[in-house]
Each structure stands twice: as C-alpha cells, then as structure tokens.
Design a protein around this nucleic acid. Structure first.
Length: 214
DNA sequence: TTAATGATGGGCT
DNA sequence: GCCCATCATTAAA
C-alpha cells in the first residue's frame, strides 16, 4: 500500500514519494519489538494540504503492567485509546500546556503504547519553524511535546487510526544500523525507572540527553 | 533551577 | 461531587 492519499506529496516531499505505509499488523506485536523496529521509520503529518514529516529516532514503551503507564490503573476516558488495537493514535495533554504523541501497540484489550520522543526533520521544515516559533533546526523536534507542536499533533487525533488521512507512519527503505540502537531507562518518570524501555539511535542529535540514574 | 499552566484521576465525603 | 497532588515537558534564568 502506497502513501497516495495526497497527490502533491512527491512535490513537497520527494523523499516520501515511494514510501510504503506500515501495515496495521506492524503495530499489533509485542511492544518492545515494535519499539525496536519503528526506529528509522517516518512520521508524516498531513495538515492544511501540506506534509510535515520526520524520521523517528527515539521512543519509549509503556505497557499496562508497568507502573509508569497511564493504563496501569485501568481504563479511563483519557487513556482508552491505549486499550484499542495497535495502530491507534494516543495523544495526551500534560503539564497544562503540552501534547505528547503515542502509537498504540499490541492487540485490542492489551493496553500498551510507544511515546514518540524525537524525530529528525525531513520535510515541511519551514512549517515546523513556524509552528515552533524558532529557526533552530535542532530545536524543532527533539522532544515529545516539541514534535507534537512542530507536526500539529493535538488532542483531536487521539483515538483515531494511523494512516487514515491525517497522520502516517511510513517505511522509505531507510536501513537503520542496528548497532546504533541503544536502550536506557525512560525519562521524566518517577516509577518504573528500572525498566530499560527507552530506545534511540546513538549519536543522533535529536535524541534527548537522558536522565542520571539515581 | 524553576515557573508556567490546567487536565486528570485517586481519595475522600 | 469536591479537593488537590501530580504530571511520559519546555523555556527561561
């Protein structure tokens, strides 16, 4: 299945003109496996007739059996997308001002998701600069809330499906050097800090610095 | 280092 | 229902 829903794509985003949309089944697998495999894939937002996209370079896994997960205490209005099938979008609002974007994984009824923490800008950089109110490339998408701002990912997408007109995950054939995939503890949490469920591409300048181990 | 900023949800009545 | 600590962050100092 090709990413053909937007005709001007090849003009605006030459790198994506031949990219494949990842099948729903890609996300309906064990969360940690998806976390590993999704590094290097492309996150593409179609908004206002334009495409904004970046390559995924840092993710964190959150599972229902994990105390750091929003789904740990069961289903609520906010976290209900985490209980849907893999390939669903989960966006939450936090700290009174930020959105964070997650890709739901596993099968329906098994709550789990991947927090996308950083992408490397590929296209629509001028739009990203406008959305982020900065011209510094390296400050556009190097954080979970930053990339949401850059790609205009907001609450209304939560619960919707990927690859359905608004937000896509694509494979452009880019091969990740698997030796560069690193694991670490997750960032910004108070519980579940022992789990090495953060995955990132070593040396990529959009990846977070990380947190000291206490 | 800390303020910004408000939705969320757990605990209680 | 009400209360209020917490929060998968960011930018400024």
């Amino acid at each position: 299945m090709r990413f053909t829903s937007f005709e001007k794509l090849s003009i605006l985003c030459p790198d994506l003109s031949n990219a494949d949309v990842l099948k729903r089944e890609f996300f309906q697998r064990p969360t940690l496996q998806v976390a590993y495999d999704v590094l290097g894939k492309i996150l593409a937002r179609v908004f206002d007739g334009k495409v904004i996209a970046g390559r995924i370079v840092e993710v964190e896994a959150y599972r229902g059996d994990d105390p750091a997960s929003h789904a740990y205490r069961g289903k609520t209005k906010r976290n209900s997308p985490m209980f849907d099938e893999g390939g669903t979008i989960y966006v939450y609002f936090t700290y009174g001002m930020h959105y964070c974007f997650n890709i739901v994984t596993e099968s329906a009824g098994f709550p789990a998701a991947l927090l996308i923490r950083a992408v490397e800008p590929l296209c629509g950089v001028d739009i990203m600069k406008k959305n982020r109110k900065t011209t510094e490339i390296c400050n556009l998408t190097n954080g979970p809330a930053k990339l949401c701002q850059a790609l205009k990912i907001e609450r209304q997408l939560s619960g919707k499906k990927l690859n359905d007109g608004q937000l896509y995950v694509l494979d452009d054939g880019f091969e990740v050097d698997k030796k560069l995939v690193q694991r670490s503890r997750r960032i910004g949490i108070r519980v579940g800090t022992d789990l090495l469920w953060r995955f990132y591409l070593k040396g990529n300048k959009f990846v977070s610095k990380g947190q000291p181990i206490k």
